[in-house]
Each structure stands twice: as C-alpha cells, then as structure tokens.
C-alpha cells in the first residue's frame, strides 16, 4: 500500500497563518562593536505564550529587551530593524517609550519588588501614570493581585513590606505589578529560574492563565519549562533565530539539526 502522511497540528495554527500582535523584522543589536543579534524576524501570536530558548549568551534576553526598548538603557547598545506593534514601528522617533512600556510590560529574572509595601508596589505603575484616586487604586491593586493568583495570600498584609514575602510570592507580586498598568504584552525574562520547584510551577500555572487576556513572551533556559508553558517556541543560537515552530513540533520533531542537538543536550 501507499505511504500516507497523516495531517497533524490540528489545533495549532501554522506560523505563516497567524496574525501577529508583535512582529520583529530584521532586528539586529550591537553592544559596542559586538553584534548580539542578527536579523531576527519573529511573529508573536496574540493570546499565546511564545517561549524563547537558547544557550546562555545567545541573545534571547537581548531580544526580549528590544521589544519594550529596555535596551535603550544600556550604554552602547544599538538596535537596527523594526518591531511592529499595532501597525507602528516601535523604533520610530515619535514613539513615546514610557507609554510603550506600559503597553508591553516586563517581569525580570530575579524578583525585584520595590522596597515598599505590597500595596505600594502594585500602585506604583498607576500612580506613575497619574492616577491618584484611592478607591480606583484599591480596585486595581485587588484586581491585579487576583490576576496574579496572589490575592488570597496577601490580602491581609497589603501594607506590610513586599520584601517579607517569599521568593515565589515576590515574583508573582512583580507579575501583578506589571499587570496593574494593563499591558497587552507581557515579557518575562526567566521568571522562574530563581525559584524553587513549587513556586516555579505556580508561576507556570499563572502564565497559562494569563494567556487568556495577555500575550506572553517568555525567555527561559529551562527547556522543560518552555515545553510546558508555551504554544510556540523560538530557538536562538549565537544571535540568530534558528527555528520558530509550534512547541510540540519543536520538541518532537524539530526541523533543524542545531535545534535538535540543543534540546537533546548534545551540544558542541
């Protein structure tokens, strides 16, 4: 009988067909003379989790920081190319970086709450944005903490220092803080790498829930984590995008030899 190839990937749309919320076009980044990223083109689908994996120093965090222009803060960093968000190039000169960062929030590797109370941490963003109405702030704080699955744990200690929370709680607080300014996209730079497994799995559950309302881009060096939480995975190596596929595809049957070598741990 004949060979028959069964069609697969029923639920996951092919990358070519998706309507991206953020799209990187030919992004290159230099740190001084050193080229950190080379011609990255990446479509980020809406209400999905996109994971970026790759070995240390492959440029994955650099890429993430391009999306909300955090690289602007690094001396000597130069970005070329376009990042398109809502039909606008984020690197156009007329873009207001501060309001851009409110739309594309970020969570960092180490939990970095401000040395203030839990409440003040969450209210920081809205206050910066000029909101001073106490009732409204209360509501935002509660809403954000609920979204970050932290409300039940901290509702009785909203005014105690955020530093007193455990590492995992601090990280969820940071996520809640980022949610408080109602972003569209949430960038996460290895958000669970400094946490113990239980705290990590809570964060992962949270990421899964978040994609209902937000688009999440997560950088991780933990491949199992990428496999667990993401819908699409991009593999970066030495500043280049090697492969970008639906996560099952990438972890079951990657197209590129380099991807396979990396994810199976047979590198170099």
């Amino acid at each position: 009988m004949e060979f028959e190839t069964n069609s697969k990937d029923k639920e996951r749309k092919k990358l070519e067909e998706i309507d991206p919320v953020v799209e990187a076009k030919n992004i290159s980044v230099w740190y001084g003379e050193e080229k950190a990223l080379e011609n990255i083109g990446l479509k980020v689908p809406k209400n999905n989790v996109t994971a970026i994996i790759g070995p240390s120093g492959c440029g994955k965090s650099t890429f993430l920081r391009c999306i909300n222009r955090m690289n602007d803060l690094i001396e000597g960093a130069k970005v070329e190319g376009k990042i398109v968000y809502k039909d606008k190039n984020l690197y156009d000169p007329d873009i207001d970086v501060a309001s851009l960062r409110r739309k594309i929030g970020m969570v960092f590797q180490k939990p970095n709450p401000f040395p203030k109370s839990v409440y003040e941490n969450i209210a920081y963003g809205p206050k910066i944005g000029g909101m001073n109405d106490k009732e409204e702030l209360d509501e935002i704080v509660e809403e954000s903490l609920k979204d970050a699955a932290l409300w039940d744990e901290v509702k009785n200690r909203l005014h105690s220092p955020a530093m007193d929370l455990s590492g995992g709680q601090q990280q969820r607080l940071c996520i809640a803080r980022a949610l408080a300014v109602e972003p569209d996209v949430l960038l996460m730079d290895e958000p669970a790498s400094a946490l113990d497994p239980i705290a990590m799995s809570k964060i992962e559950d949270l990421i899964y829930d978040l994609k209902q309302d937000y688009t999440v881009i997560i950088v991780t060096h933990n491949m199992q984590q990428a496999a667990r939480v993401s819908d699409y995975t991009a593999f970066l190596f030495m500043g280049k995008l090697i492969e970008h596929s639906p996560t099952e595809k990438l972890f079951e049957n990657p197209d590129k030899k380099k991807t396979e070598d990396y994810i199976t741990g047979r590198f170099g």
């Binding site: 491949m223 199992q224 496999a227 972890f251 079951e252 049957n253 990657p254 991807t259 396979e260 994810i263 199976t264």
Partner: peptide, 9 residues
C-alpha cells in the same frame, strides 16, 4: 531525562 525530539521519538 525528559527526552525530547529524536530521543523522545
């Protein structure tokens, strides 16, 4: 070992 890709297959 959480095998992936070729190893998993």
């Amino acid at each position: 070992q959480q095998p992936v890709a070729k190893d998993l297959r």
